[in-house]
Design a protein around this nucleic acid. Sequence first.
DNA 1: TATGAATGAGACTTCATTCAT
DNA 2: GATGAATGAAGTCTCATTCAT
Lengths: 221, 221, 221, 221
Amino acid sequence: MLDAAFEEFAAHGYAGAKMTAVAQRAGVAKGLVYHYYPSKEALFRAVMQACLEPVFAEAEREATDEDVPATVMLERLLDLAYAEREGQERQCILFRLIVAEGQRFPELSAWYEEAVFRRAVAIARAVLRHGARRGEFDAALAEQEGMAEVLLAPAIMNEVWRMMLGEGRAPSRAGMHAAQAALLARALAPGGMDARGGGRDAGGKEGNAACPATRRATSAP
Amino acid sequence: MLDAAFEEFAAHGYAGAKMTAVAQRAGVAKGLVYHYYPSKEALFRAVMQACLEPVFAEAEREATDEDVPATVMLERLLDLAYAEREGQERQCILFRLIVAEGQRFPELSAWYEEAVFRRAVAIARAVLRHGARRGEFDAALAEQEGMAEVLLAPAIMNEVWRMMLGEGRAPSRAGMHAAQAALLARALAPGGMDARGGGRDAGGKEGNAACPATRRATSAP
Amino acid sequence: MLDAAFEEFAAHGYAGAKMTAVAQRAGVAKGLVYHYYPSKEALFRAVMQACLEPVFAEAEREATDEDVPATVMLERLLDLAYAEREGQERQCILFRLIVAEGQRFPELSAWYEEAVFRRAVAIARAVLRHGARRGEFDAALAEQEGMAEVLLAPAIMNEVWRMMLGEGRAPSRAGMHAAQAALLARALAPGGMDARGGGRDAGGKEGNAACPATRRATSAP
Amino acid sequence: MLDAAFEEFAAHGYAGAKMTAVAQRAGVAKGLVYHYYPSKEALFRAVMQACLEPVFAEAEREATDEDVPATVMLERLLDLAYAEREGQERQCILFRLIVAEGQRFPELSAWYEEAVFRRAVAIARAVLRHGARRGEFDAALAEQEGMAEVLLAPAIMNEVWRMMLGEGRAPSRAGMHAAQAALLARALAPGGMDARGGGRDAGGKEGNAACPATRRATSAP
DNA sequence: TATGAATGAGACTTCATTCAT
DNA sequence: GATGAATGAAGTCTCATTCAT
């Protein structure tokens, strides 16, 4: 029945979903839905909880194997992030519901933060720190605040775009995957800019980039 | 009146918005709303169109000044992307509405693609190409497919997280901004990895990174 | 279980009572209620019957002891009528249910007439006749049609007011009791008005009082 | 529309009344009822208020004409109380609704007290006091606490019985009217019991009647 | 006996939409 | 242009009743 409800909410959003349709999808009478869940809102919460529970349950058994080189761990992380996973559609729908109904159901945002965001950031950070300690990554860069989020963003955004634009018009997974891998390989490699030849305006770049300007603005999300 | 409608749709979504409330927000009678827009759906389309029009109109006067160094252009682009802009809340709401109602109103996705996505990618790509041509960026890397999207994703994702998690719990703009700036500075600087010491696993990294594995999956969006 | 049902009907009336609530009050499952009573209506009838049965059963062992002076019998009758009796709340609830549902369940009215009204009138009438025969009461007055009802009304009405207005705002039992006792003492005492001084307007009073006018009307129940 | 609602509530009680039926009785669409009254409860309150308003408004222009003998005033009061008045059915229904729903809507009881009970008692008390001052009534008796209520109760109870038992089985108005008139004529006439011949056990009667006993009780309302 | 899941008609209520003014 | 009374389809929710266990 929760599956039926999930499909209905996924298809029409919270306000657009009909309890009758939920019952029909589940093949039961309207009243039975109310026998188990006292209201539409309660049903929605139950559905969301059931969807997020497994994500909660899934442990952090990742990214803690000290013997693997950090470059391999990073590679695996990207593979994972860009992978076309089973159940991914469900997660995208979940994401959409959280975006759409997060204001009406604040616990959704909290759940997302706990179950997804914090966890993903923690994993990425662990990989970066691992590389920094083993000398595989430039320590200052890898452990910089915000680097884990920057690492994760492209793969997630790829999914968001895929959801918004449709499979056909979204950027390819492989393309972004390769581009980000190449970018990270060059950027994280130790030795830094002063070890290299040119580096002419390197300092200049880094200096003012860290100071987010607040000029008149325009484009964006 | 479109403003009133936008607020109502923003606050409750398409299905949850009430025509009466729109009229009240606008300070007019219900009938007058129908005098201008024949139906709720038409009103919604009009609101969305009105919101996206300025984004359309805003020209591409950026990123085409050939005399500016690419590093400066990139810096400006990041400044812009991470800036806390006036009207940003409105754009976030727009983003949310597009995510939430994109299925019901396919033109919303199309609009988003035309007005925002394509344009942003084009600008990022122009900056990268500019740097590649001037020798400021590693040409192979900067012109790699998907690099523009990787460049844009963190700033956009930062806004998405901010919208989903709230101002307090989202990653800081400044942190991600600085991290990404540092990352790009090291990665894009010409000279490449072969110029440096042990390029041992560089090829390996890039090689398999480009081939997105489909192993057991876990986290993600 | 009938107790539980009585409480539920008392609390919410017939239409407002829920079978589920009855079952819960009784501490049994809903199905069991239906095992004993085929429908809500049947349950209600059973409850009412069970409530009225003891009132039926309670004998007329009163008011028939010829050796007691009528004044004492009358006194006892008033004491009884104005007494704050155990189980009185239940009877008030019963009264309320009969008033409220008497139209839907005509047998309720019939029961009330048989079990309560007729019986009470008979008792009052017996006391009055007893006094008339013994010469304690003015015979013409005591045996007048309607006198028994007039005798009973104040005590009953006192309870009705108590039920409608609440304990705090209703007229006091003691006050009405004393007033009615004093009234009856003076009125019923034999000797009559012609024995006294100016019986000028006595006949006049009684004459037109027996002819209920139908003038413009105002207050009442 | 309030008329239609009154009829529906009168016919089925609060819980049994259907908004659809109200609309049909009024000859309008269901939605229009909600256009004026936000809920069933609000409609019920409005109906009750509208019914009680005129009773409120009706002034106390009665019982204050000092030139009329108190016996005539009393006679008029009884005529009025026992009269078969136009609109009486409506008042009986109102009475029934107040009894039935007084628990759910405490303001009903309050209204009844203000609009009906207090007023009626005040009028009766004024008549009694008038008679006492003019010497037409025995002052001690007429001004005794609770006498006004005892005076009013029979006529009201007559209506209550009529409502509960139906026109055919209830005691006749004329009979109770005449009996009460005769009773009052004898009781209230000044001169008192000590002025008369016998009066043997008069003192005894009054003494213990004023002390309501609390013995085991049985019958009543 | 005893349970409570299951049913579905029907209740209250909402709200997009119409239309006479 | 502007209003808001009026409509009625449709949604959420209730609850008497049934029935397999």
